[in-house]
Amino acid sequence: MEQKPTRPNSYLALAIISTILCCLPSGIVSIIYATKVNSLYEDGKYDEAVRASKNAKTWGIVSVVIALVGWLLYILIFGVAMLGAIANGGY
């Protein structure tokens, strides 16, 4: 009997996190790749499944990082501006 290689991670949780928390439809792309990982693996296309897994990981991480950096920049810019306004008694 043929030995199956280990199942590549589908990064489903990461995909859902990036969809919900990042406001970027790129999370949808991660979910599509997660779906591909599972169906390709079931079809025995192991190499393609591994490639889809890498794509799922990249899309998930990239959208989380973009959202995080954007979020931090926004908070920093507006936080500093508001602190300044409070310090000047204008707020």
């Binding site: 969809t19 919900i20 928390l21 990042c22 406001c23 970027l24 439809p25 999370g27 949808i28 954007g70 979020w71 926004y74 908070i75 507006f78 936080g79 508001m82």
Partner: peptide, 21 residues
């Protein structure tokens, strides 16, 4: 005001799956 608004909603006026999180 210092919390970012959803950029997708800001540009398109359409709620995305992440809006409200």
């Amino acid at each position: 005001a210092f919390f970012p608004k959803c950029p997708f909603y800001a540009f398109t006026g359409i709620f995305c799956p992440g809006c409200g999180s």
